[in-house]
């Protein structure tokens, strides 16, 4: 699995404006809607399942990264979006750091495998500090996609 398999280039934002958890989740879901990956009528439903998942425990996994994710019948296949917050958002991370890199995933109900593989892939790419810093400081969406595509190629070759 490659990141570009579930990340559409239209669903990337280099400069998220929100500064609270609910606001940033809404802003990220809007990326999915605008990219046509989720039907607009399901906006609130998707936000609700993502927020419910956060209630169970934050998806901020440390080092400035958050991976809000949930299953919802509004998704017919695994879809994702990527947003960067330059100033950072308090996402209740275990390490107490603000989250800057948001990788949001929505998977169809009854799918465990692809979801886990996607989380593994995202973690593998973001484990690298250089990549995290490059994404955080990327000037635009094209730069972000270039970084992701290069990493996809690099990891596929290992």
């Amino acid at each position: 699995m490659k990141i570009s398999d579930f990340l559409d280039k239209k669903a990337v934002c280099a400069d998220l404006k929100s500064d609270t958890k609910p606001a940033v989740i809404t802003e990220l879901v809007e990326l999915l809607l605008n990219a046509g990956l989720i039907d607009k009528k399901n906006k609130n439903k998707v936000i609700d399942v993502l927020m419910a998942r956060e209630e169970l425990g934050s998806t901020a996994i440390g080092q400035g990264i958050a991976i809000p994710h949930a299953k919802c019948d509004a998704a017919k296949e695994l879809v994702g979006c990527l947003g960067i917050s330059k100033k950072g958002v308090n996402f209740d991370s275990l390490d107490g750091e603000l989250a800057h890199i948001f990788f949001l995933l929505v998977a169809p109900v009854d799918s465990a495998g692809p979801h886990l593989k996607a989380l593994a892939k995202i973690s593998r790419i973001l484990k690298d500090k250089f990549i995290r810093d490059s994404l955080k400081t990327a000037k635009d969406e094209t730069t972000i996609m270039k970084i992701i595509e290069q990493e996809d190629i690099r990891l596929a070759a290992i």
Binding site: A120, K121, S123, R124
Partner: peptide, 11 residues
């Protein structure tokens, strides 16, 4: 490391 553990993709 949560991230480290996630990279294993242990099913």
């Amino acid at each position: 490391s949560i991230m480290g553990i996630l990279t294993l993709g242990a099913q």
